[in-house]
Amino acid sequence: MAVDIKNLSHTQLTELIAKAQSRQGELQKEKVTRLRETISELIKAEGLTFDDVFGKSAPKSRRAGAAVAAKYRNPTDPEQTWSGRGKRPRWFNDALKAGTKESDMLA
């Protein structure tokens, strides 16, 4: 099925792209489902279980919300620290504006 995309309007082209991406997702899901069924059949044919072949799921190495060591320390208030991740704290930005270098605030 050949579609002459040169004659399509912007709206028609956008709709065509959306339909194509949707179909692509459907085909991917079908492929994964077939592969899972094939793997299950092979495992059962050998008299094994999924856990025998792949083992139980390994525990995650990192926990969500785990504390990260402080990388920067407020020179005027050593109690205030920042790990260097996420949004910069106000004291960090204020210190930079005041002329303090990042390297001077390393913990």
Rank of each mutant, 00 (worst) to 15 (best):
Q12P: 06
Q12R: 10
L13G: 02
T14C: 12
T14K: 14
E15H: 07
E15A: 12
E15F: 08
I17E: 00
I17Q: 02
K19Y: 08
A20E: 08
A20C: 10
Q21V: 12
Q21C: 12
S22R: 11
R23A: 14
R23F: 12
Q24S: 14
Q24P: 00
Q24I: 13
Q24Y: 14
Q24F: 13
E26T: 14
L27K: 10
L27E: 11
L27H: 10
Q28I: 13
Q28E: 14
K29Q: 15
E30G: 05
E30Q: 10
E30F: 02
E30P: 02
E30S: 08
K31T: 08
K31S: 09
V32A: 09
T33S: 09
T33I: 15
R34L: 11
R34N: 07
L35F: 06
R36M: 14
R36Y: 11
E37R: 15
E37M: 13
E37Q: 15
E37W: 11
T38F: 09
T38Y: 08
I39F: 10
I39A: 15
I39T: 11
S40N: 15
S40M: 10
S40L: 13
S40P: 02
E41D: 12
E41Q: 13
E41K: 12
L42Q: 15
L42Y: 09
L42P: 03
L42F: 09
I43R: 00
K44C: 00
A45I: 06
A45G: 10
A45V: 04
A45R: 06
A45D: 09
E46C: 02
G47D: 00
G47E: 00
G47L: 03
G47K: 03
G47P: 00
L48N: 05
L48T: 06
T49M: 02
F50N: 08
F50K: 08
F50R: 09
F50I: 11
F50Y: 11
F50S: 09
D51M: 01
D51L: 03
D51R: 00
D52S: 01
D52A: 01
D52R: 02
D52K: 02
V53A: 03
V53C: 01
V53D: 02
F54H: 03
F54Y: 00
F54I: 01
F54L: 00
F54C: 01
F54W: 02
G55E: 01
K56S: 02
K56N: 03
K56Q: 06
S57A: 05
S57L: 05
S57V: 08
A58H: 00
A58I: 01
A58T: 00
P59F: 04
P59A: 03
P59H: 04
K60R: 06
K60C: 00
S61R: 03
S61Q: 04
S61H: 04
R62E: 07
R63Q: 11
R63T: 12
R63N: 07
A64W: 13
A64L: 15
G65A: 07
G65F: 08
G65M: 08
A66E: 15
A66I: 10
A66Y: 05
A66S: 12
